[in-house]
């Protein structure tokens, strides 16, 4: 094999190989964005299933939980965590919605791409690498979570649920929540091969309990101590507390805020890197 070393790539330099080296420059650099573009084009095909939940979920939850349940609580204890129930629950609804979106987005498109309609193999037959395919999906979910979050936040503000000017940053807390859970979930789903309804099990026995036991609808401290650990390991609890710090200043000590951030970032990075590695094993057997 020829191994001329006349160019930057330390590779052979026939016409064909030179053309190949040139042609791969853009995919090597922007591959993840092409995957994102694919996801956005697919979303445009089914735009109603993205737009209606984005608008409908916050309206329904803010009315039902914030105003409905909130008025009951006002008649009882008056306030929660020093603020009205609406102010207390709104940031949690925002992060819980992001958490839910991430659960679906890191289950179905990933399962589809590897197994049900194996488009990831098609992407990888083109110049895209397994890592770029995962990155593109992470980007696509992030875009959706941020857009949904901004809509959610605007409605929260409209309901009068955001006393602090820093409140809009709670959308980033929602994004961190989504990615912190999404990274490991993506790795797990990427590793699946056989059909055993694992997706439903995750939604039913992980996503739902975490939503209920992560201090979403009531402070975690109200739970019996032997159940509080669920909150401590739950990305949703860490993300929700962060969002509360931002929307009404929940008054948590600085070290605890740092723990929230560190936990969310660390779980995402570990899960995401694992997902990239698993994708590589899967696509490049």
């Amino acid at each position: 094999m020829t191994t001329a070393t006349t160019n930057d790539f330390d590779g052979p330099s026939t016409d064909a190989s030179a053309a190949a080296l040139r042609a791969a420059l853009r995919p090597r650099r922007f591959g993840a964005l092409y995957v994102l573009e694919h996801r956005l084009r697919a979303a445009r095909q089914a735009w109603t299933s993205f737009v209606f939940p984005a608008l409908g979920t916050p309206v329904l939850y803010l009315f039902a939980m914030g105003l409905g349940l909130g008025s009951l609580i006002r008649q009882g204890s008056g306030s929660v965590d020093g603020v009205s129930y609406l102010v207390f629950v709104a940031p949690a609804l925002l992060t819980a919605a992001a958490f839910q979106t991430a659960s679906e987005e890191f289950i179905f498109p990933i399962r589809v791409g590897f197994k049900w309609n194996p488009i990831f193999f098609g992407m990888n037959a083109a110049p895209l690498s397994p890592g770029q395919i995962i990155d593109g999906n992470v980007l696509a979910t992030s875009v959706r979570v941020v857009l949904n979050g901004l809509v959610y936040f605007a409605l929260m503000a409209l309901f009068g649920a955001v006393p602090s000017g820093w409140g809009v940053l709670s959308v980033l807390a929602a994004l961190l929540t989504a990615l912190s859970f999404g990274g490991p979930l993506c790795a797990y789903i990427a590793s699946l091969d056989k059909e055993a309804s694992q997706e439903t099990l995750v939604l039913r026995f992980v996503v739902m309990p975490l939503t209920l036991f992560s201090g979403t609808y009531f402070p975690l401290a109200l739970m019996p101590v032997y159940l509080q650990w669920i909150g401590w390991i739950s990305p949703l609890w860490h993300g929700t507390q962060l969002a509360r710090d931002l929307t009404y200043g929940a008054g948590e000590p600085g070290w605890l805020v740092a723990v929230h951030l560190a936990y969310l970032v660390a779980t995402f990075v570990v899960g995401w890197q694992l997902a990239r590695r698993i994708a590589g094993k899967r696509l490049n057997k």
């Binding site: 590779g11 190989s17 995919p27 194996p118 488009i119 037959a125």
Partner: peptide, 27 residues
């Protein structure tokens, strides 16, 4: 095309057209 696929995967794939055994069009 004069390149080692272990090292130049994306480069080689940029010059290939691949028709896999089972279709993987995006439905």
């Amino acid at each position: 095309l004069g390149l080692d696929p272990n090292r130049y995967g994306p480069e080689i794939r940029s010059q290939l057209g691949v028709v896999p055994q089972s279709d993987n069009l995006d439905v």
